[in-house]
Simulated assay, not measured.
Amino acid sequence: MEVRQARHFLAIVDHGTTGRAAATLHVTQPALSQSIVALERELRAQLFVRSTRGMTLTSAGETLVQPARSLIESSVRAIAAIEGSMDVPRGELTLAVTPALASTPVSPWVARFRARYPHVMVRLLAYYGDESVETFFDRHGVELLVTFDGAPGADRVRCVEGGAQEMVVALPPGMPVGEGPTVRLDQIAHLPFAVAPPNTSMRRLLLAAFEQIGAPLHVSVESPFMDALPSLVAAGAGAAILPAETAGTLRAAGSVVKHPDPPINRHYYLYYSEHHLSYAAQAFVRTVLSGL
């Protein structure tokens, strides 16, 4: 079995149909089908049961999955070893990022990477969390993704925690609170809040914090435009929980900024494709890990 055949086989295993697998591999569906038929002929075993609903593995096919993954991984490592001996990755690297993390920590990561590997052009792609990490990898062909949460695939996607984003409490101008730098959430739980949409990490974080103190969350404004939340707070539309890096902007607009007690943090993660990692992407992962 060749590496190309292993990629074709695993693409169908991972996507369930030749159509979706062919689209991911950027090959035609007939060519992919012919490749699998040739592989079955070579192995003298039927690997899939074909139906109108897709492709289901036979017992022989299930036996082949792990060896196929090992073959691809060995191929990736071999190429990386050769390229690594030269230590000069080139070309382009696409990095998907949740917008709230583009400034910190992704910008410093990219700057460190570019300082060491100036021949690689980095392209940032927005990830809004409206689809799973694994699905996003499949549909957009990215190798790396930085976001707050998500469920990595069992075999194909790995993740490493990159750190935590500190949050602050932003209150409308003139809001009477204590003189200290902190405020307890139960002291302001009666206030209306400007919030992110449901099913976003910001909204889940806020709901979890309110659930911890046993209080309901009163929503005054729900906005997908995160850049608008500081302006909404400054205009008196409600309080908000926002990244600490916005504190300067909030204070300049007249808002009251406090640190929550206890602290509220959002952990973020670097996700990467286990079996389709170019040398440039491997170098980026190493750059990030070296700074953690």
Score class of each variant (00 low, 15 high):
A6W: 08
A6T: 07
F9H: 07
G19L: 07
A23S: 12
V27R: 11
A31M: 04
Q34D: 10
S35W: 00
E42H: 13
A45I: 00
S51K: 05
V65S: 04
P67C: 09
I72Y: 06
V76N: 09
S85F: 03
S85V: 00
V88S: 15
G91I: 06
T94N: 05
L95W: 06
A96D: 09
L101Q: 10
T104L: 08
P108K: 00
W109Y: 11
V110F: 02
F113L: 08
R116K: 15
H119Q: 14
H119E: 14
Y128Q: 12
S132F: 04
F137T: 02
D138S: 14
H140Q: 09
G150T: 10
P152N: 07
C159A: 13
C159Y: 01
V160R: 09
V160E: 13
P173R: 03
G178M: 05
P181S: 14
L191G: 08
A194C: 15
S201W: 07
R203L: 07
L205Y: 01
L206Y: 02
L207M: 12
A208S: 14
A209R: 11
F210H: 14
V219R: 06
V219Q: 09
P224D: 13
F225T: 15
P230F: 10
I241V: 15
A253N: 03
P262W: 08
N265A: 13
H267M: 05
A281E: 03
A283D: 02
F284C: 03
V288F: 07
V288L: 03
